[in-house]
Nucleic acid binder design. Structure first.
Length: 924
RNA sequence: GCGGCAUUGGCGGAAUUGGUAGACGCGCUAGACUUAGGAUCUAGUUCUGCAAGGAGUGAAGGUUCGAGUCCUUUAUGCCGCACCA
C-alpha cells in the first residue's frame, strides 16, 4: 500500500483530538516533567519553516518522556501584546485585537498540522484579561514590596513602614505625599525620573535590551536619551542572585556568559576625593585602587550631580555650552564619533594619597549611570584617560616598571609597581589588595562591588499592552484593590498619542478608578512573558496565578527550548520575576528554567538567476550559473533573486519561472550545456536542458524570495517528513540554512519504513534482526537523552536497510514506538498495523500509551569480536576471535602471531596493541 | 579590546569513553527496469596513483603505543558585550 501521508496525518490528528490524547492532569502518580517552548509572538507573516525547529525538538523530547512514563506538561501559548499589531492598527485603524486573533488562528492551524502534542486546554494569551490579571497582580506585589539588602530578598513594604513608625520619629511628621515619595525610593516597582531611551518614531521608551547601537531593535529607528518619569523595576537589586543562580542551572556556557556580561559584576573600591575649598568630598568608583598615585585629573559625567558643585563662575558659560552640546548628541552619534571632548570645571580635587591638586573635568566618556558617574583618571594605565590626557596636555605618570607610556597606555593588570609610595615593588594584584586595605583603614573609601545591570524601565507610551493597576491621587500613584483586577484595556477610537502628547490611553473615555485617573502608560512586551511558564501550570485558576498544589507538583521548567536572542531580555526578566515571586512564597523554585537549549536559526537559502547585461542585452536572457565565469559572460551578468519554491535542487523550473512574474514571461535561457532556446526549437526536455541557479545563505525574508512555508512542505511531503528533515539538517544548536535538496532522501526513507509494515507476521525474529533492533533502541535512546536528534535518523535508515524485508511484529512494533517522537503520525499507523496481526482485535490503541522499549545488551553481543591489531602504529590486520575468548587467549594468539607481525613489519615488535575494548599491551 | 563557540570530502554532517575517520543523506558516475520520468532498484563515490601503496580532520608544535577528540601557539569565521573606570 502506498504511503498516503495526507490521510494518515489527518486521521491521527483527529483521533488525538477526539480522545484528548495530550490532556495533562495536575494530579498524577507519575513523575512530572515540564517541557517548554518560548511562546511566539503571532506575526502577520505566519510561521516559516525556521520557526518550528525548536518546537519539533521539544515535541520529540516530550513524547519520549511520555513514553518513558512521565506526566509531561508541554503547553503552547501566544505572546500577543506587542508593537507590530499596534503599528498595523495605527496604519489601518484595525483593532490590534482583531489582527492578533486572526494571526493566532493561523499559527494554531499551522502548529496543529505539524502534529505537536500540546495540551491546547492550557493555552495562554498574554492579551486576555484572565491572563493579564496576574501580570497586573504581580506588578501590585512589586509595588508593595521592597528589597531588603541584608536578607537579600523582597519583603512587604508594610514592614518598612512599621519599622520607620517605630524607629524614625520624623516619619509621622511627614505628610502622606512625603511618605509616599520616601517609599518610592524602596518599592521594587517604582516611579522615577530616569534617563530613558526614547524612540520618537515609535513614540515610546524602550528598555536597554530593546536598543542596539542607538537604534530600536524593532524597526531600526533612532533612539535618543531623555529624562522622563517612568515606572521601573528594581532588577538591579537582584543582580547578585541573578549572577549566583547561573551556577546552579544547566544552560550553555555561552548563554550564561552573555548574562554574566550583562549583569557585569566588577569588584573595586569607592573612594572619596576632597574638593579644594569645599567641605563635602565626592565619591568615585575604581577597580584599580592601586593606581591612585598616578591620578592626574578627575572626570565627571555631564549628567553628574557633582557638576553643579564644582563649576566655578568663570567657567560656567563654557560648561553650559558643553552640557547643552552633550544633551543634543544622540547615543548613536556618541558611539560613532569617539573623538575626545570635554571641559575644565575650574575646580581642583585633592589626591588623598599624594595630596596633589588635580583638575576636575567634565566629559561624556564617563557615564552617569555606572558607578558614581565620576572617575579618577589614570592616564598611564587606562586608554580612555590616556587619550583625554594627551588631548588636554595633562601629565601622565607611569606606575608599572618597564611600562612605556610614551605612545599608549599600559592597561594590563600585571607588573611591579613604581612611583607609588608604599606600594612600590609590589605585584599589581597585591597592590590592589594593599590599597583597598589602606583606604578602608584610613577611611578614605571602602571596598565596593558594582553591577552594570540597570533597573528595567517598565512604562510604554503605547496602547496595545497591559494597563497598569495604578491610579493617581494627589499626584502620587496608588495600587488598585486586588479584588478589582483585572483593569481591562479600554476601547479607544484612536491608537495614536493624544493631541497634547499623552499616551494613547489618554483617548479612552472614563479611564478612572474610584474617580481617580488611571495610569496612561501600558506595560512593555516582557511583562506578559515573564511568568507565563507558571500560568501554564494552572491556567484556569481564577483565585491565584498558580495554586500551591499545581506549583509544587510541576515546580519548574525542566527543559526550555528557544532562541538565543532573548539572552539579555526575557531570560533575565523572567528569572528576576520568578525570584521575586519566590521571595513572596508564591512559588517553590528560585530559578524558572532548569535546563535551557538554544536552537540555532534556520537561515534562508536564496536562489539566483543571472540576467545578461553585456553587449546587445535585451534584458531577457538568463545565463546558467555554471557558465557565468566564462569569458563571454564574466562580469556581464546581474544576479536576481528567484523564488526558491520554483527551484528544485538548484534547477530552475522554466515554465514556473515564465509564469512567476509578467517581466519573465518571454525569458530566454542559456542552459547548462551552453545551448539556447534558439538552438532547440522544440524546447528540450528538462532532463536534457537544465538551467542551474546560483545560491547564497541569507536571512529568510520575503524580499529575498527564500521563505519556505511549512504548510507547503507538509502538503508535498507530510508533517512527519518535515519533522524528520528539520532534525536531520544538523545539530539543534547550530544555525543552518534551509536546504530542500535533501528532503527527498528523508521522504524515501519513510516510504521504505512504511513498506515494512505490509503483511506483518508473528514469526520469531532472528539473532540478526534482534541485533539491529536493539542497536537502534540503544542509539535512539542515547540520542534523545542527549538532544542529538539529528543522528537518530541515520540510525533508523540503517535499521530499515538491515531489516530489508523483515515483516515480523516482534521487531516492527518496538520500531513504531522508537520513531513515535520524531514522526508521530506514521508511528500511530504503524502501531495500529502491528496490533491487527492475525486478525487480532482492531481495537485502536495509541502508540503514545506504549512503553519505551528497553535495550537488552545480550542481543548486541556479536558471536565474534574483531581485533584490529596495530604494530608500532604501522601494520594493521584483523584478528577475529570468539566473543567468549578471554584476555589471556587473545594475548596468546597475538603472541603466536608474532612471526606474521615480524614478517609484515620486518623488525622486532616493541609492542602490540589490540583494539577495540581494553588496551592489551604486549611488550616483546 | 574582553568573553563564548566553531573549522572534517563537491555539499549538510557522523565518529557518544583517546582506539579501523568520512556513518547517513544530498549530489555525482555507471548499470537495470521503463513509451517516458523530477519514479524505483543495484553498484561506485576523501584525495592521489594503472596498481601495490601513499597522504589526509584550518595551520604549526606537544603528550600518547595510538589524537578529529587532550595540551600550547596561531589563522579564519560566527555570536555576545563594550568609552562599564
Amino acid at each position: 500500500m502506498d504511503y498516503n501521508f495526507q490521510e494518515i496525518e489527518q486521521h491521527w490528528q483527529t483521533e488525538w483530538e477526539k480522545a484528548g490524547a495530550y490532556k495533562v492532569s495536575n494530579t498524577s502518580s507519575k513523575k512530572p516533567f515540564y517541557v517548554l517552548d518560548m511562546f511566539p509572538y503571532p506575526s502577520g507573516a505566519g510561521l516559516h519553516v525556521g520557526h518550528p525547529l525548536g518546537y519539533i525538538a521539544s515535541d520529540i523530547y516530550s513524547r519520549y518522556k511520555r513514553l518513558q512514563g512521565f506526566n509531561v506538561l508541554h503547553p503552547m501559548g501566544f505572546d500577543s501584546y506587542g508593537l507590530p499589531a499596534e503599528q498595523y492598527a495605527i496604519q489601518t485603524g484595525q483593532h490590534p485585537e482583531k489582527t492578533t486573533f486572526t494571526n493566532i488562528a493561523r499559527y494554531v492551524e499551522q502548529l496543529r498540522k505539524i502534529g505537536f502534542c500540546y495540551d491546547w486546554d492550557r493555552e495562554v494569551r498574554t492579551c486576555m484579561p484572565d491572563y493579564y490579571k496576574w501580570t497586573q497582580w504581580a506588578f501590585i506585589q512589586m509595588f508593595n514590596s521592597y528589597f531588603d539588602t541584608s536578607l537579600q530578598k523582597a519583603q512587604p513594604i508594610s514592614r518598612l513602614i512599621a519599622k520607620w513608625e517605630a524607629e524614625d520619629p520624623t516619619w509621622t511628621t511627614l505628610t502622606e505625599k512625603q511618605q509616599q515619595e520616601r517609599l518610592m525610593n524602596y518599592r521594587i516597582a517604582y516611579l522615577a525620573d530616569t534617563k530613558v531611551n526614547w524612540c520618537p518614531q515609535l513614540g515610546t521608551v524602550l528598555a536597554n535590551d530593546e536598543v542596539s547601537e542607538g537604534l530600536s531593535v524593532r524597526g531600526g529607528f533612532p533612539v535618543e536619551q531623555r529624562v522622563m518619569r517612568q515606572w521601573c523595576l528594581r532588577v538591579s537589586a537582584y543582580a547578585p542572585r541573578l549572577l549566583e543562580g547561573l551556577n546552579h542551572i544547566d544552560w550553555t556556557e555561552s548563554l550564561k556568559e552573555t548574562q554574566r556580561n550583562w549583569i557585569g559584576r566588577s569588584e573595586g573600591a569607592e573612594m572619596r576625593f576632597n574638593i579644594k575649598g569645599q567641605e563635602e568630598p565626592f565619591t568615585i568608583f575604581t577597580t584599580r585602587a592601586d593606581t591612585v598615585f598616578g591620578v592626574t585629573f578627575m572626570v565627571l559625567a555631564p549628567e553628574s550631580e557633582y557638576v553643579k558643585r564644582v563649576v566655578t563662575e568663570d567657567k560656567k558659560a563654557e560648561v553650559e555650552e558643553y552640557l547643552t552640546w552633550c544633551k543634543h548628541r544622540t547615543e548613536r552619534e556618541r558611539i560613532a564619533d569617539r573623538k575626545v571632548t570635554g571641559v575644565f570645571t575650574g575646580s581642583y580635587a585633592i589626591n588623598p594619597l599624594t595630596h596633589a591638586e588635580i583638575p576636575i573635568y567634565i566629559s561624556d566618556y564617563v557615564l552617569a549611570g555606572y558607578g558614581t558617574g565620576a572617575i579618577m583618571a589614570v592616564p598611564a594605565h587606562d586608554s580612555r584617560d590616556y587619550a583625554f590626557a594627551k588631548h588636554f596636555n595633562l601629565p601622565i605618570i607611569p606606575l608599572i616598571e618597564g611600562a612605556d607610556v610614551s605612545e599608549q597606555s599600559f592597561d594590563a593588570k600585571e607588573g611591579i609597581m613604581i612611583n607609588s609610595g608604599f606600594l612600590n615593588g609590589m605585584e599589581v594584584k597585591d597592590a590592589i589588595r594593599a590599597m583597598k586595605e589602606h583606604i578602608t583603614n584610613t577611611g578614605i573609601g571602602r571596598v565596593k562591588v558594582n553591577y552594570r545591570l540597570r533597573d528595567a524601565i517598565f512604562s510604554r507610551q503605547r496602547y496595545w499592552g497591559e494597563p497598569f493597576p495604578i491610579y493617581y491621587k494627589d499626584g502620587m500613584p496608588y495600587a488598585v484593590d486586588e479584588k478589582d483586577l483585572p483593569i481591562t484595556l479600554p476601547e479607544v477610537d484612536n491608537f495614536r498619542p493624544t493631541e497634547d502628547g499623552r499616551p494613547p490611553l489618554g483617548n479612552a473615555k472614563d479611564w478612572t478608578y474610584k474617580g481617580y485617573p488611571l495610569e496612561l502608560c501600558t506595560m512593555p512586551g516582557f511583562a506578559g512573558s515573564s511568568a507565563y511558564f507558571l500560568r501554564y501550570m494552572d491556567n484556569h485558576n481564577t483565585q491565584a496565578l498558580v495554586s500551591k498544589q499545581a506549583n509544587e507538583y510541576w515546580r519548574q521548567v525542566n527543559l526550555y527550548i528557544g532562541g538565543t536572542e532573548h539572552a539579555t531580555g526575557h531570560l533575565i526578566y523572567s528569572r528576576f520575576w520568578n525570584k521575586f515571586l519566590f521571595d513572596l512564597g508564591v512559588i517553590c523554585e528560585d530559578e524558572p528554567f532548569q535546563k535551557l537549549i538554544n536552537q540555532g536559526m534556520i537561515q534562508g537559502r536564496s536562489n539566483f538567476v543571472y540576467r545578461y547585461i553585456g553587449e546587445g542585452a535585451t534584458g531577457n536572457l538568463y545565463i546558467s550559473y555554471n557558465l557565468i565565469d566564462n569569458p563571454e559572460y564574466k562580469d556581464k551578468v546581474q544576479p536576481i533573486h528567484v523564488n526558491v519554491n520554483i527551484v528544485k535542487n538548484d534547477i530552475l523550473d522554466i515554465d514556473a519561472f515564465r509564469n512567476w512574474m509578467p517581466e519573465y514571461k518571454n525569458a530566454q535561457f542559456v542552459y547548462s550545456d551552453g545551448t539556447t532556446d534558439q538552438d532547440n526549437p522544440y524546447l528540450g526536455t528538462p532532463a536534457e536542458k537544465q538551467y542551474i541557479c546560483g545560491w547564497a545563505v541569507e536571512k529568510m525574508s520575503k524580499s529575498m524570495f527564500n521563505v519556505v512555508n511549512p504548510d507547503d512542505v507538509i502538503a508535498q511531503y507530510g508533517a512527519d517528513t518535515l519533522r524528520l528533515y528539520e532534525m536531520f539538517l544538523g545539530p539543534l544548536e547550530m544555525s543552518k540554512p534551509w536546504d530542500t535538496n535533501g528532503i527527498d532522501g528523508v521522504h524515501r526513507f519513510i516510504k521504505k519504513l512504511w513498506n515494512l509494515y505490509e503483511d506483518i507476521n508473528n514469526d520469531e525474529p532472528t539473532a540478526n534482526e534482534l541485533h539491529s533492533l536493539h542497536k537502534l533502541i540503544k542509539k535512539v535512546t542515547w540520542d534523545i537523552e542527549n538532544f542529538s536528534f539529528n543522528t537518530s535518523i541515520p540510525a533508523f535508515m540503517i535499521a530499515v536497510n538491515e531489516l530489508g524485508k523483515c515483516h515480523k511484529r516482534a521487531i516492527l512494533a518496538p520500531i513504531a514506538i522508537l520513531i513515535a517522537p520524531y514522526a508521530p503520525h506514521i508511528a500511530e499507523a504503524m502501531w495500529e498495523k502491528c496490533q491487527m496481526v492475525d486478525g487480532a482485535s482492531s481495537k485502536r490503541t495509541f502508540v503514545i500509551d506504549a512503553e519505551w522499549p528497553v535495550c537488552e545488551e545480550k542481543y548486541l553481543e556479536e558471536s565474534t569480536i574483531k581485533y584490529p591489531i596495530q604494530f608500532c602504529g604501522k601494520v594493521r590486520f584483523t584478528l577475529e576471535m570468539s566473543k567468549d575468548a578471554s584476555k589471556e587467549e587473545v594475548e596468546k594468539i597475538v603472541l603466536a602471531d608474532e612471526q606474521t607481525i615480524k614478517q609484515l613489519a620486518g623488525n622486532t615488535p616493541k609492542r602490540v596493541i589490540v583494539v577495540p575494548g581494553k588496551i592489551v599491551n604486549i611488550v616483546v
